[in-house]
Design a protein around this nucleic acid. Sequence first.
DNA 1: GCCAACGTTGGC
DNA 2: GCCAACGTTGGC
Length: 136
Amino acid sequence: MSNWLLKTEPGEFSFSDLLREKKATWNGVTNNLALKHLRSFKKGDVVFFYHTGNEKSIVGLAEVVSNPYPDPNLNDGKLVVIDIKPKRTFRRKVSLSEIKSKKEFTSFDLVKNSRLSVIPVSDIIAALLLQLSEQE
DNA sequence: GCCAACGTTGGC
DNA sequence: GCCAACGTTGGC
């Protein structure tokens, strides 16, 4: 099982949208590296849900509920999508500035490659993020 | 196949 | 609103 981070502009699609809709298809990814990561998704993987824009925070957890499959709305086998469902909202949002301020996260692509929208999260990073999300 | 010009993303 | 850091496009 792997952990991932998905970025979204909350004005386009937010975690509360996901909570309301119960399930969403993650489409629109065209960047090569992001697509490569997306193709590695597996049913049951954990997704950290990150809001860009004003928020710049990880706001909750989702779960991957499908393996990658070609976007049914497009005629291009390379452009894959996955389905996710909400898991839970973080007790406490974990902000980008907080992540940037800690040396444990210097290897994290969220910090290193700010333009990437589908980011692998190691077990170590995942555990640290969860720990931060539970802090008072 | 190189690279200049242009477009996009997202943090600041 | 700016711009750094990419990615993409198209002429050569």
